[in-house]
Design a protein around this nucleic acid. Structure first.
Lengths: 134, 134
DNA sequence: CTTGACTCCGTACTAAGGTACAGGCTTTAA
DNA sequence: TTAAAGCCTGTACCTTAGTACGGAGTCAAG
C-alpha cells in the first residue's frame, strides 16, 4: 500500500496530477484509511505508468481512457471489442512507421555529421525522402 | 506556389495554425506578392507535414523545432550536432518500445476476444506484463 | 466593374492538461 | 507531546497549442 506522494513519485508526476486523473476517471477511486488518506496498490502503479507512457506517445487522456477500458465484458459484444482494438492497432502502426522514419533520418544525419562535406539546409527533411512523401 | 489555404489544406490544418507556426518560428516567413499575400513552396508542404506527424507522436512544438533545426552548419560543432541527434534517437527508441508493447497487448486482447473464456478486469494492463515492468 | 471568396493583421478567446494555493486535519519522528 | 511533513478538499490559476473574430485590402469570375 502506498500513499499519494509515493505513487506520484513512482511515475515522476505531481501529486495534484493524481487527483486530476481520479476526477477524470483515469485512476479508480482508491480505498481510504479512517483518516481519509488514499491507499494505492501496485496495480495503480502499473496503471499510472501506462497512462504516462501512452500520453508521451501522443495519445490524449481521452484515448488513454479508451485503451484502458478496452476489455471483454458481458456488456460489450465481443466483435465490437475486437473492432475497437483493431482500430487502435492501425493507429499505432502508423505511429510506428512515422517514428522509424524520423529515426532513420536522425541516423543519417549523425552519419553525415561524422563524415565530411556540405549538407543541405534541413537534413531532417532531406533524409525523410526529399519529396516529403511518407 | 501555393496560397495560405492551399498549404493548410495540404496537411489538413487550419489557416490560422500556419500563422501561429510562423510566429513560433516553425515555418519560415515565406516570400510575399506585392499585395502582401504569402507564397508557399513545396518545401513548406513537406515541412508542415513533418510538423504534424511529429506532433501526433507526442513531440511538443519546441521539440519539433529542435528536430528541424538539427543540422550541420559552420556555427555548430559537428560533435555537438551528433550528440543531439543521438539523444533524440534514444528518445525515439524508447517510444518505439512502448508502442510495440501496446500493440502487442492490443493484439493479445483481440485474440482473446476472438476466442472464449473469461479475462481479467483490465486486459491491457495484464497484457503489458502483469507486473507493470517495462 | 462589381461581388463573393480569399487574405492580411492584431487581438482575444478556447480547450486540454495540469499546477498552485488556502485552510484545516493526520502522522511520524524526535 | 509537539513540530515538521504529509494529506484532504475546493477553487483559482497557468501553459501549450491552437481558433475565432473584426475591419480592411485583394483577386478572379461573370
Amino acid at each position: 500500500m502506498l500513499t499519494t506522494s509515493q505513487l506520484a513519485n513512482s511515475a515522476g508526476v505531481n501529486v495534484e496530477t493524481l487527483r486530476y486523473y481520479e476526477r477524470r476517471g483515469l485512476l479508480p477511486e482508491p480505498p481510504r484509511r479512517a483518516s481519509g488518506y488514499r491507499q494505492y496498490s501496485q496495480d495503480d502503479v502499473a496503471r499510472l505508468q501506462f497512462i504516462k507512457r501512452a500520453k508521451d506517445l501522443g495519445f490524449t487522456l481521452q484515448e488513454v481512457q479508451e485503451l484502458l477500458n478496452l476489455r471483454v465484458d458481458p456488456d460489450t459484444p465481443c466483435a465490437m471489442v475486437k473492432r475497437r482494438a483493431d482500430l487502435k492497432i492501425i493507429d499505432i502502426e502508423a505511429k510506428l512507421q512515422s517514428l522509424k522514419r524520423i529515426k532513420k533520418a536522425l541516423n543519417k544525419l549523425a552519419a553525415t555529421c561524422s563524415g565530411r562535406g556540405p549538407v543541405g539546409d534541413c537534413p531532417i527533411l532531406e533524409a525523410l525522402g526529399g519529396d516529403g512523401t511518407w
